[in-house]
């Protein structure tokens, strides 16, 4: 188990890091960044896997299955969508000539 106060420090530090990163973002990147952060909380998948891995009763298995399913959807979908959005930022630089 986690010592409660260590976690409080980690909560605090992670919050500052998250705040710090976003504060210098150009408007252009707001949507991709929202999408990217949406992908990152897809890490809930690992928690769901552990939970389902320790599920015993029927109900626990159902809940665990739903949790893994939803978490995996969050992670996979979040990745694809973010990648597709950011792909556009990359192409436009060298794109001036070859795409008519």
């Amino acid at each position: 188990m986690i010592d409660g106060f260590v976690a409080v420090y980690v909560f605090m530090l992670a919050a500052f890091v998250g705040n710090e990163i976003i504060s210098k973002v150009p408007v252009v990147l707001h949507t991709p960044l929202m999408s990217g952060s949406n992908f990152i909380h897809g890490i809930v998948l690992v928690g769901a896997m552990v939970a389902l891995g320790h599920a015993d009763t029927q109900l626990e298995k159902v809940f665990g299955f739903i949790a893994v399913f939803l978490g995996a959807g969050n992670a996979a979908g979040g990745y694809v969508v973010t990648e597709r959005m950011l792909e556009m930022f990359k192409t436009k630089k060298k794109d001036k000539g070859d795409k008519k």
Binding site: A15, G18, N19, I22, I43
Partner: peptide, 26 residues
């Protein structure tokens, strides 16, 4: 992040709080 604490999973705690803070500011 909170459920990460419940499960004792540091990756969830850090990543979740990161998004929580970044998302709030956004």
């Amino acid at each position: 992040s909170f459920e990460g604490y419940v499960l004792g999973n540091w990756a969830m705690i850090v990543a979740g709080m990161l998004v929580g803070a970044a998302g709030t500011l956004l």
